[in-house]
Design a protein around this nucleic acid. Structure first.
Lengths: 235, 235
DNA sequence: ACAAAAGTGTTAGAGCTACACCCATGC
DNA sequence: GCATGGGTGTAGCTCTAACACTTTTGT
């Protein structure tokens, strides 16, 4: 690195960098969002996304993962950078750039002890309370991204337990897209990806007949994550 | 905002925030990238994306736009946030988070006087020189995003002049996807979007017969930008 | 035996791919 | 008059959407 550029660095203002995580969860019925209580502001209860500051010694992804762990007790979660929000007045206390991440978790896996420590709650995605700063914009964008990805990639699995049934998966997609889907077409389509491995076990209790459990073919899944094309014709 | 949170701000380290723009251009034949000369590093010529620092008084988008204007003299360009890069060691001089943007411009619109001022050059996307820091990762991600978007949205128009021909548009898509496309299928598909308005004029000079010029239906185009769905069945 | 959810097949229509010839013009 | 790129149509195939009945089993 040359000296001529070094001087540029001296004159610059450093800025606060935060991370905020939009944490989606699915409990088998509805799509939910995990929010932390922030007390009362301007006469209204206020909630916020789980957030924290970027430490100079950690990568962005690592910081997001650390914060996620602090709130949920979960490691090894699907986590993806969403967008950097940096409007000058988004945080009234001091100018802060926030890099938002979104995470997908299976609600029953979530450690409830932590919920008490942090005063966190799951809110159905359609009944969200007033939120801090621009957190509602973050959530809106995350919902869009979730749909976008779920439409092209089989990302929905991340929100379910390791073993799940086709009807569960359908309910999840119905929740994400806020629609209903034909059960025959859905199962044909999802099975045609070849990503599901049918197990011998059935899920019992929920229905009288019971539904077969499936697992993801992890290896194939990782590969597919990067392959899609649409508008392109074959050479 | 409550006092209890204010204290959190005091203890935090502020961090340098930069912006880098991946500027794609199309000249009618090949897809190109605009890079700025950075002298020689470790015995190799080094080039870099156009970048700058985030000023505490400007929004992220505004800063990216300012920087783009400084280099190209162009305003009112397609510009979209790509990703925030924040690895601890990405900039060896000081820890810097860089928010990358990608821009699409029509090469002939680009002001060449500026090119001399900044020692900037257009490189064909397939023959890129060694670049500063993690700029090659940024470019790789931008290429991916460009394809992703171009496959779903009619974003390619942004790289062409206001009036263009179908063969030009096809060449652009071929350049983006590094493939060839059947001209009949392509024009059917692109016309079926209803986004193109056929003009009475023909482009002359390039071919003997001449090709009809088209314009985008701006209004429709803005609307379509937000609508797409794929995996979802109708209710 | 009946209620409740799981599971399975078929058909019609839309959209995609592949493919070959004529057109308009400048030289 | 011929070379160059522009423009158009069709047939087969694949994918999607729409739709209803049978199976299993707990009560």
């Amino acid at each position: 690195m040359q000296l001529q550029f070094k001087n540029q660095y001296q004159d610059q203002k450093r800025i606060l960098v935060a991370l905020d995580s939009i944490i989606f969860g699915f409990d088998g019925e509805t799509l939910k969002l995990l929010l932390v209580h922030r007390g009362i502001e301007e006469g209204q209860e206020s909630w916020s996304l789980m957030g924290g500051w970027l430490n100079p010694s950690e990568n962005l992804d690592a910081a997001a993962r650390r914060i996620l762990f602090e709130l949920t007790g979960l490691n090894d979660i699907y986590l993806e950078q969403l967008y950097a929000f940096g409007d000058v007045n988004r945080d009234p206390i001091e100018r802060t750039v926030s890099v938002a991440y979104f995470a997908l978790i299976n609600v029953p896996d979530y450690d409830k002890r932590i919920s008490h420590t942090y005063d966190a709650h799951w809110f159905p995605i359609s009944e969200l309370p007033p939120m801090l700063f621009d957190h509602d914009r973050m959530v809106a964008l995350a919902k869009e991204r979730l749909r976008y990805k779920a439409a092209l990639h089989p990302i929905g699995f991340e929100l379910l337990p390791p073993k799940f049934t086709i009807p569960q998966l359908r309910k999840l997609y119905e929740a994400i897209f806020e629609t209903t889907m034909d059960m025959r077409n859905f199962s044909r389509k999802i099975l045609s990806t070849g990503l599901l491995i049918k197990l011998k076990e059935k899920q019992r209790g929920y229905s009288k007949k019971g539904a077969f459990l499936f697992q993801i073919d992890e290896e194939k899944y990782r590969k597919e994550m990067s392959s899609f094309l649409n508008f392109v014709g074959k050479p």
